[in-house]
């Protein structure tokens, strides 16, 4: 079936408008052009962030376009392009080789799954940076969508940092209406699982996304049942971060796997439960190339030790301006040599 680009984001935007107006959180728009502008605002249209109507309603009518905003938007945009082309795309090549293989050796499978974790983060946060940058160039302010998610110390913490516009949307318009935490602990846990299952299904009608949502919902419910300090609290911070990253990475296997059987086989390879085909011996020669190893190391450094674009671009100095354009131009030059490289979230 042919569907318009970003259909689910359109739907979220329209729902946000309808519910906010129904609840009295915002006034209905009298001008259809303003409404269309809200629903189909191109900078964030195809892959988010999802904007809450009540936040944007005022900006649609009263906003100021300043050179400060435009210049900051440029910095965001160039860094977003660099994230996508210089980090997400090479990590994506590793992940594609690993996940599309018929069978794979254990070490290669882990390398491929870490590569996908980095790919999806830099792809999506790169897009969000570009959307925020483009928005700023037109005078709009969009809220942060990612906040160093791989520094999360629990799955609950992860969902405060990953695709924040989706997690807040799910809470506001789904979790709370179905009961939220108003009830026994078991009911709250069930609500969390249902919310995340539906959140998973939003990504696509496939068992893979249901399992991915179920895994996250189950972990949220489990952590909720353990109380505020949680089961990891006595572990060192580094272990908490590593453990959370590991759980998230395992979840991404279902997200990327394509089919349930493929995902289970891939997980089997990661935990050395399958005997790989002899031709899996070739995969190492394709993914441990200097370019890919360099990309994944840089991605790891940026993820765990880097500064977010928001903080980095808060004070624009000459060296930062030079870095911004050096990275952006290199990214555009590399992009010119590549074929079509869509963003992962374009399909949702």
């Amino acid at each position: 079936m042919v569907l318009p680009l970003g259909i689910s984001f359109y739907t979220f935007q329209a729902l946000s408008y309808t519910i906010d107006v129904y609840r009295g959180n915002a006034e209905a728009m009298a001008n259809f052009i303003d409404f269309s502008c809200f629903v189909s605002m191109f900078p964030h249209l195809v892959a988010g962030p999802i904007l809450k109507f009540s936040f944007l309603a005022d900006q649609l009518k009263n906003r100021r376009l300043t050179s400060d905003k435009f210049a900051r938007g440029v910095a965001f945009f160039m860094m977003g392009v660099a994230k996508k082309v210089l980090l997400a795309n090479p990590c994506g090549k590793i992940a594609d080789t690993a996940f599309d293989a018929g069978s794979i050796q254990t070490l290669d499978a882990w390398f491929g799954s870490f590569a996908y974790s980095f790919q999806i983060y830099f792809d999506f946060s790169g897009y969000s940076d570009m959307a925020i940058g483009l928005g700023l160039m037109f005078g709009f302010v969009f809220a942060k969508n990612f906040d160093s998610p791989y520094l999360a110390q629990s799955i609950t913490d992860f969902w405060r940092r990953w695709h924040i516009s989706l997690s807040t949307w799910l809470r506001e318009y789904l979790y709370i209406p179905i009961g939220g935490n108003k009830g026994a602990l078991s009911r709250t846990c069930a609500n969390l699982i249902v919310t995340m299952l539906i959140g998973g299904l939003w990504h696509g009608a496939s068992w893979n996304f249901v399992i991915w949502g179920g895994l996250h919902g189950g972990m949220l419910a489990f952590e909720r049942s353990q109380g505020r300090k949680g089961v990891y609290h006595n572990l060192p911070k580094l272990v908490r971060i590593a453990l959370t990253f590991l759980i998230v990475t395992i979840g991404w296997v279902f997200f990327r796997g394509g089919t349930l059987r493929g995902s289970v086989q891939y997980l089997g390879a990661m935990f050395h439960l399958n005997q790989p085909f002899p031709n899996a011996a070739l995969i190492g020669g394709l993914i441990y190339k200097p370019y890919y190893v360099l990309s994944i190391l840089t991605a790891g450094i940026v993820v765990w030790f880097g500064t977010q674009t928001w903080d980095w671009s808060q004070q624009m100095t000459w060296p930062k301006t030079a870095t911004c354009f050096a990275l952006g131009w290199v990214a555009l030059i590399v992009l010119a040599t590549q074929e079509y490289n869509p963003f992962i979230y374009f399909i949702f």
């Binding site: 629990s154 609950t156 913490d157 969902w159 405060r160 924040i164 997690s167 807040t168 799910l170 809470r171 506001e172 979790y175 935490n181 709250t188 969390l192 919310t195 949220l220 419910a221 952590e223 909720r224 505020r228 300090k229 949680g230």
Partner: peptide
């Protein structure tokens, strides 16, 4: 520490 399971 996070107060809510999903952010407000």
């Amino acid at each position: 520490l996070p107060k809510y399971s999903l952010p407000r």
